[in-house]
Write a protein that binds this DNA or RNA. Sequence first.
DNA 1: CCGATGGTTCCATTATTCAGAACTCAATTT
DNA 2: AAATTGAGTTCTGAATAATGGAACCATCGG
Lengths: 270, 270
Amino acid sequence: MGATDGDIMDKNESADKRETGTLGKLMVLLDIVTHADSPMRFTDILAVAGQPRGTLHRQLGHLTEEGLLEVLADGRYAPGLRLLDLASRSWARNEFRLIAEPHLNALQQLTGETVHLGVLRGASVIYLDKVEGSQPVRMYSQIGNASPIYCTGVGKAALSALPDDRLDAIISSVSFQRFTDNTLTPETLRGEIADIRRSGNAFDREEHEVGIRCVAAPVYSEDLSFVGGVSVTGPAYRLTFERLEEWALPVRRTAESIMSGMRIGLGPRR
Amino acid sequence: MGATDGDIMDKNESADKRETGTLGKLMVLLDIVTHADSPMRFTDILAVAGQPRGTLHRQLGHLTEEGLLEVLADGRYAPGLRLLDLASRSWARNEFRLIAEPHLNALQQLTGETVHLGVLRGASVIYLDKVEGSQPVRMYSQIGNASPIYCTGVGKAALSALPDDRLDAIISSVSFQRFTDNTLTPETLRGEIADIRRSGNAFDREEHEVGIRCVAAPVYSEDLSFVGGVSVTGPAYRLTFERLEEWALPVRRTAESIMSGMRIGLGPRR
DNA sequence: CCGATGGTTCCATTATTCAGAACTCAATTT
DNA sequence: AAATTGAGTTCTGAATAATGGAACCATCGG
């Protein structure tokens, strides 16, 4: 049964295999609309979805009826509010996040920089929490975001926890995009992973965004049923390389605290 | 299966009935799991859902496969991470929120208190944004949350924008829970709504939580395709009744700015 | 070893969904 | 003004996926 679900099957949201019947088809539509830059008209969706008009019409109708999509005044489709409601519940009760929360706060206090908690999903990292300093900044800006795995501290930390076969599977499934001069390539990434496994820390040296650095450490369950990471992020002028080294240990400690919290917190299992 | 000869029973005229086929059934399950206080076992869900074992098994399988649910190591079901991803996209691109954002920031600067943006969905208010002062506080704590409509500033403000028939429909569909001594009842609520329509401002005088007050104003589109509100919230010791009055106008102004932004921002419609 | 409890698989039956065409409605073009 | 196009909606029998019931595996506790 489901303890170890074996292998990761569908890495990306490309529409090819549907093992999920009707739901799968609807989720493809939902993805199309949520990934769009702006609300889409019926015909726009029709062109991408490649379904008969009548069928698409009913499907969109159902999604709308359920609040997963919404129809704007001009007839275009946008993601619905029901998603926010569902997600906020999902987030609020997430055990991993709840357990991690106090440790994240402590780390934020210690470093004064922004602390992130993320978890691996398919070939992306999804941010589960973020604790900032005192700036009245955009919240939610990161939480829930799916980010590339090869150029974020949390992503690389998470990767380092995986066995080689899953690592390879993920690396080969991702298309590497060059965000900055320092962004890694598939080859350099493997080297990095080795370093991370040795030292216990992943670094992001302006690989995703110029001027932003971070130091991270992996957090994972014994059975690898989930894999994630914690990180401290900040502007390059504050996070000098010495600083990064200085915080490497506290970050690892935080990761360890979270992991031991998980072993207790999730209760007796198996 | 003969075609649907004569429909014997008409739709219920007061409540909208859901005709969403398979999706509807799955969403019910998703709701069950996301509303639970903790992850549920198969049997727990079985008891609530009232479906045959085999059916439920497949449905949960599909939801899990799509990442809407996830099975923990011990086999229990919890909301999945896919929801966060979907919601963050939904949130990030929400036109209403994008248009409102600068105005919310301005209001926060002016008052120094927490500013909320919410929108009516069914008989609840869903918070779309929140701008806080400088405390490093829980983010996301409100965003996406569905809150009762009769004891929050934003909720009452939103209600005041509705025509009486829709107002009645909502009021009669909600069960009023008494949170504090000041929580309104269906009868007092109607009086309040009249006041709000007159003055343009809704107040929450510790009706939801003792020690918390707020002043709000309605924000809505001409055609009422959506209805929401903005509010300034804070602790009672800072938000004296004089203060509330003082901020009533700025809050209304903010609401108006957002509405005029919407008229332009959403472009030509209809 | 037995008998619970909790979860999974199979398969004929049945209800939903599908596809494609026909239809409405408005805005443009001629 | 009539004709044409574009965008969206509503019908159908036919195809497909969902259903429900029972039989089938695990574990666990005695």
